[in-house]
């Protein structure tokens, strides 16, 4: 059986953590063993810690992140490397990485032992066109090119609670065009369930639509 090793990268507010967590849950519901890895060392790194328990309860096999108790006594919000993350590629089953924002965040992947030779590793960049850094085709092309080795894109345009199907469709056109300039596949357009249903199975640019749940709201950041 082929294993999935996927790292989700992107700019701040792209929704990469949300997309990564939903992907891990999707693989879990297919009965697969999934390890979710918090690689966010861009300070302050609060991504998965608060929802670690609920992810485990929902069937994710392991969540490699700092537990709250590990953080007591460290002073500032630590940008410490979690040693457990160094060796996760040795584990069996699927691995989903949630990587910190920006180019500097994405570079954290290099700290995982074996990541440079891992044949299964796919780096997937999450794009939200309502962030001005990735608002236009040329912005997206520039940003994606500045990241180390991106294999595919996920289109996740949203405006928080104000998201509408039109906003997503507008984003889909822009991301679709950027992807063709970059010669990169768009794995999916992601949207909360009711908007995903409103758009249908594919969006206006022909990307597959994937419904996601908003779980990161519980993490505050």
């Amino acid at each position: 059986m082929r294993r999935y090793v996927e790292a989700y990268v992107g700019e701040g507010t792209s929704g990469k953590s949300e997309v990564a967590v939903n992907r891990a849950l999707e693989l879990t519901t297919r009965g697969r063993r999934v390890t979710m890895v918090d690689l966010d060392i861009v300070k302050p790194c609060y991504t998965l810690r608060p929802i670690q328990g609920s992810l485990l309860a929902m069937g994710v096999a392991e969540v490699v992140t700092w537990a709250s108790r590990d953080q007591v006594g460290m002073g500032e919000t630590p940008v410490l490397w979690n040693p457990a993350a160094s060796w996760v590629l040795q584990r069996s089953g699927d691995i989903v990485f949630d990587v910190g924002y920006g180019v500097e965040g994405a570079k954290a992947l290099a700290l995982v032992e074996g990541s440079e030779v891992e044949a299964d590793l796919r780096v997937i960049m999450v794009i939200n066109t309502t962030n001005p850094l990735t608002a236009t085709v040329s912005d997206i092309v520039e940003v994606v090119s500045s990241f180390p080795a991106v294999h595919a894109l996920v289109h996740n345009t949203h405006l928080g609670d104000e998201t509408t199907a039109e906003i997503i469709q507008d984003g889909a056109r822009i991301v679709g065009e950027a992807a063709s300039v970059l010669h990169m596949p768009v794995v999916a357009t992601t949207a909360v369930a009711e908007l995903a249903a409103a758009i249908g199975e594919v969006d206006c640019a022909g990307h597959q639509v994937r419904a996601i749940r908003r779980l990161m709201t519980d993490t505050f950041w």
Partner: peptide, 8 residues
């Protein structure tokens, strides 16, 4: 012009 955006 004006633009609705999402950021930190």
């Amino acid at each position: 012009g004006e633009k609705r955006v999402f950021m930190t």
